[in-house]
Design a protein around this nucleic acid. Structure first.
Lengths: 343, 343
DNA sequence: TGTTAGCACTCCAAAGTAACGAGTGCTAAC
DNA sequence: GTTAGCACTCGTTACTTTGGAGTGCTAACA
């Protein structure tokens, strides 16, 4: 069967109505649509066709129709273009909080949740390609030194390093100099075996300290295993009856509380690193990698702040999500994040 | 009316049964209790008395009895003594993660939630009385320097400081020396106006840098306004039918997602600072300061890690909470936290 | 050939009804 | 003081009824 113009108009009408109401839509409702001038009987025939084609389905014999996953998918694919929603408020947040990444991200998800009525999430930017700006070792006490690591993008990390024997201040000064001259401006990937062995050699009897520092650097800069994820609006699930029965809601909210499982929704795609921004990924129903979200849709978008800092931001809601709006907001938001640090 | 031994036994029996089942308890159920050897009719008479005294109440005429807030209160007050629950597992967590406060706290709440089936929360330790160990300024670039602040308790904080004009390395070295000699070993309270003005004087033309550093120190060490709060197990509310209707659950979980409102449950009492540890606060029903929790009970306990680091840890659950167990676990937990850093 | 009006049919949701039973208070007897 | 017995209350559960929204099909119409 062929999907002609009229079928598409009807399908759009069904989906739009269902997005608003959450109730199955009947032929009479559609027949009242302004762009359509057909009787309910004709609509019924077309609906019957659309059902056969797999785009809509009936919960039971004498009910209206609801969109199937395939229906949503078609709708989303055809709608994905254009859309430049304005999200001005967020810009203010950013300017205000530029120096505290964590706060910024928390505010972003909160803002998103408040504006969409869905649950939202964002990953802290990974620092993979980031270059080191400097490393500072300081003596804390006899058995510990503190390593402060600053990246090109001004992200600061600390690690305490325990030692068998204390180091005197001169040695620490020397090590500082050594580390900074050797590692300055390198990315994590560029610190390879030869750099390391050369460093250790130069460090002489303190090579164990050097290797501990390097471990700390590696761990601080690119902790693959626990990317920070911030979430907000998990209780928005209660706003959609189809998700708010105790069991489903409980599972969903748990997932948002745990945070780690969400990582599988936010995997960076290859394109992200290419600087191709705002590229949007939509999972509908069964398509999502998480079992708990088989009744949800997930929309994520990548952001790239430059200097190797990139991550993803996403929204989880019912399948009858307002895809249009969500895609628009995400596109705009990521664009603003992109510009924030680039200038 | 007098609360005699028999009434107390019956009240205990009612509360215990209700804690388990969550259903109103009838006289026949109680009459089967082993320590009691009375017919249901007698129990009914006693129950009638207990109701008159305000310790139990009837949801409707022909239902069993449930404990009132006053009943729980009596029960809790009489039960509060003894109890040394063993919580060995937690000790392992602690040893493993000693150097990362944030991770430790997250693990503690997670552990608590898993072991009690209630929602749990913990405040990061406040650093009020903490002494400074050292301050390290480093040049980041022309317009920024980084201040690293380390306290006696090895808590590390960073702050970026923006400058009008860059500083050369010698000046930074000099400032470092100045700051450390003047501030070393002082608590926040001890850095008073005279210290500050003396410092500024010695800093000469760089007094603006000094005051910015001091601001950073003050802000980093004692941010009263946003104490960190970690939570876990918010979805445990679903396990108790009396809390899991959509509206209540939604409000409760939101509160746990927001985190800030919880601060009012975790206010440090005067005793906490005195080093009197594990002192336990129980709010029952209407007693809680948060409106959303009028149907809940809240139990919190203080911990004191020494060196001016103290905070609170707490549990939120239904009024029919297993107070015995909760108090036991909290006592044990706080004791372990206390010992952790003190040695 | 495509569109529409009409009609019988389906089936969910809401409202009403009935039966059940757990629990009570009261009374009278032990 | 304790207990057995009994009438009564009232929420819970299951079953029945009813209304209406929506469908598919057929026949008539343009």
């Amino acid at each position: 069967m062929q999907m002609d113009e009229r079928k598409w108009t009807i399908l759009k009408a069904i989906i739009k109505t269902y997005l608003e109401t959450g109730e199955p839509v009947g032929s009479r409702t559609i027949s009242k649509f302004p762009d359509l001038n057909l009787s309910s009987a004709t609509i019924r025939n077309e609906m019957s066709d659309l059902e056969e084609m797999g785009y809509i389905l009936q919960p039971h014999t004498s009910a209206g129709r609801i969109p199937s996953d395939a229906g949503y998918r078609l709708y989303v694919d055809r709608m994905m273009e254009e859309k430049e929603q304005e999200v001005t408020e967020i810009r203010d947040l950013m300017v205000q909080r530029q120096d505290r990444m964590e706060l910024l991200l928390k505010q972003v998800v909160k803002f998103l949740a408040a504006n969409t009525n869905y649950a939202t999430m964002i990953t802290g930017p990974r620092l993979h390609q980031t270059r080191l700006k400097f490393i500072q070792l300081s003596v804390v006490d006899d058995s510990q030194i503190l390593a402060v690591i600053v990246t090109e993008t001004n992200v600061v990390k600390n690690r305490m390093i325990r030692l068998e024997h204390g180091l005197d201040r001169d040695t620490v000064l020397r090590l500082n100099l050594l580390l900074n001259t050797s590692l300055n401006g390198l990315t994590i990937e560029q610190i390879n075996l030869s750099t390391i062995s050369k460093l250790k050699e130069e460090a002489g009897i303190h090579s164990d300290v050097v290797s501990q520092v390097l471990d700390a650097v590696a761990e601080a800069i690119s902790r693959e295993e626990d990317v920070e994820i911030y979430t907000s609006g998990a209780t928005n699930f209660f706003k959609y009856p189809e998700l708010s029965d105790t069991e489903k809601a409980s599972e969903l909210i748990s997932t948002f509380e745990e945070k780690h499982p969400l990582a599988s929704l936010m995997l960076p795609s290859e394109k992200d690193a290419d600087g191709e921004n705002g590229n949007i990924q939509v999972y509908i129903g069964q398509e999502t990698p998480l079992d708990t979200m088989k009744d949800c849709s997930v929309v994520t978008a990548s952001y790239d702040m430059g200097g190797g800092m990139y991550g993803r931001v996403g929204i989880v809601g019912p399948k009858r999500m307002d895809y249009d709006k969500v895609v628009g907001i995400l596109k705009n938001l990521t664009q603003q994040l992109d510009e924030l640090y680039k200038k």
